[in-house]
């Protein structure tokens, strides 16, 4: 239960994205729509994965990605689970806002996929479900499904669930510098009830993920949770970067791995 299994070509990390494309995702957050910000953040996340997976001129398939958009239906954006080198070829999908927010349906799809995948992940890092939304669910309560997902496990640890909640007002105090921000902890005062609910169904940030985040210049606290209040584009990007912070294999980085910044 240490979340220190390395993501390698032979033991890739599975990451499932659940992206809310309800109508409100067309609203502005600053100068851009929420979906535009999500698309840019997904691109940054994918670039980070490619950066971390590239050895010489080849992208090693250290990540396997599934991406679902949901509204009142769930849509498979990548046509199944795809390795990062293929997703890098495909690019990030363009998203257009639709209608409602059936969050439970999206998590049901993630649960179904995990049930299929888990038997083959005994030597891989614990999978991660990264859920991005901007508002309360319109269907049934997703919490029971999320709890079931969080109870699923591989030897590396339980399945991780991350929530990125895009909204203007979530924290009592604004985050002035995202790189100095300590993250949402169990004690952080959240001004929105749904944010509190999402926090309850967010995994604690594993120390191995935190180490990667610190290496990337962030300052998340030891007791930070995998819950990001997407109040600014920089915070949304932080959320997606966190989803790709699985420790990577040494086939990679000798000498430690990433650039010394």
């Amino acid at each position: 239960m240490s979340y220190d299994t390395l993501a390698t070509s032979k033991s890739p990390a599975l990451i499932i994205y659940l992206l809310d494309v309800s109508g409100s995702m067309g609203d502005k957050l600053g100068t851009k729509t929420r979906l535009e910000i999500v698309t840019e953040s997904l691109t940054a996340m994918l670039r980070q994965m490619v950066f971390r997976s590239t050895k010489g001129g080849r992208v090693a398939p250290r990540y396997r990605i599934a991406m679902y958009a949901y509204s009142d239906h769930v849509y498979d954006l990548l046509g199944g689970v795809r390795p990062v080198d293929q997703v890098a070829q495909l690019g990030v999908p363009e998203l257009t806002p639709m209608r409602s927010t059936d969050t439970a349906l999206a998590f049901s799809q993630a649960e179904k996929l995990l049930q299929q995948e888990l038997p083959n992940l005994a030597h891989c890092p614990a999978p991660l479900v990264c859920h991005m939304t901007d508002g309360e669910f319109t269907g049934s309560d997703p919490e029971p499904i999320v709890r079931r997902i969080m109870a699923m496990r591989v030897p590396d640890g339980n399945v991780l669930v991350e929530n990125i909640f895009i909204s203007d007002q979530l924290l009592a105090e604004p985050v002035s510098d995202v790189h100095k921000w300590g993250g949402v902890t169990p004690k952080t005062r959240l001004t929105n009830k749904y944010a509190q609910k999402l926090r309850n169904i967010s995994s604690p940030l594993p120390q191995s993920y935190r180490a990667t985040m610190l290496e990337s210049g962030y300052s998340l606290a030891e007791d930070a949770l995998m819950m990001i209040p997407g109040m600014t584009p920089a915070l949304v990007e932080l959320g997606f970067v966190m989803s790709a912070a699985t420790p990577i294999g040494a086939e990679s980085p000798s000498g430690g791995g990433s650039y010394a910044r």
Partner: peptide, 20 residues
């Protein structure tokens, strides 16, 4: 491999019919 391009998704639902 090149046919993967056809999977690149762009959700372009018309707002009136909501068929993605």
């Amino acid at each position: 491999p090149t046919s993967l391009v056809s999977y690149i998704p762009t959700i372009t639902a018309a707002p009136d019919e909501m068929t993605p």
